[in-house]
Design a protein around this nucleic acid. Structure first.
Lengths: 112, 112
DNA sequence: GTAGTTGTTGACATATTACTCAACATGTGT
DNA sequence: ACACATGTTGAGTAATATGTCAACAACTAC
């Protein structure tokens, strides 16, 4: 249940930034930030999330995923690469042992 | 560039269904089908795509992916499972050899 | 107490997505 | 010719996502 709003508020406070400062640097209204942080409103669109991540110096992907959105970069991968949907269909059933092996493989150097 | 519209039209014709028949069974206007098939309009929302897939007897996922959308089931996986984003970040760089090994692993019986 | 700073709230506005409706064109059979 | 079935097109609508604006509340420092 990790809320996007909660995460955003924590990050913002850690960076000692006010809602108005953040909003101005992102290019949106500060009252919107307020509502997002309180989960009164849904997380903003991906481009705004990316701006936020730049201002707050976090990985965009972290915020996008916390917003329960699929990063557009992933979307392209998934819809363009035939292998990936095959993988994802099975992904929820993988044991931790299987995940471990998979990680070993993807951490190998690519060999062609 | 496999167009959703083209695929839809081919499937529909193979099934000997008219635009009006399909539209009625799906619960949308037949002129919408026309525009989708001619790629005048974007593919419909996921729920409509699923209805279409039921009527035309194809895997929903096939149509959803052809529409360049990420199935909601995948969205949940990606945003809820920590391992998957890690995997996807690397996925575009995987060699076919690596893919082969990964497939072997996911085809094992789950052991934990 | 009042001026400045920060955050909240409700109503409203804009943009984007996802469709519908009326009219028409194009065949096909009789 | 006409009727009927099928598909196309342009304009308009509905729904949803994404925001803004004006007003106010709460705190801090002077």
């Amino acid at each position: 249940m990790s809320e996007f709003g909660e995460l955003l508020r924590n990050l913002r406070k850690q960076r000692k930034v006010t809602q108005r400062q953040l909003a101005e640097r992102v290019g949106i209204d500060f009252t919107y930030i307020s509502k997002i942080e309180s989960s009164t409103m849904d997380p903003p669109a991906e481009d705004k999330i990316i701006r936020i991540s730049e201002v707050l110096q976090v990985e965009p992907e972290e915020l996008i995923l916390a917003a329960k959105k699929v990063p557009k970069s992933f979307q392209r991968l998934i819809t363009e690469n035939k292998e990936i949907p095959v993988f994802l269909r099975k992904a929820s059933d993988l044991s931790s042992a299987q995940w471990r092996k998979i990680k070993e493989i993807i951490d190998e150097e690519g060999e062609g």
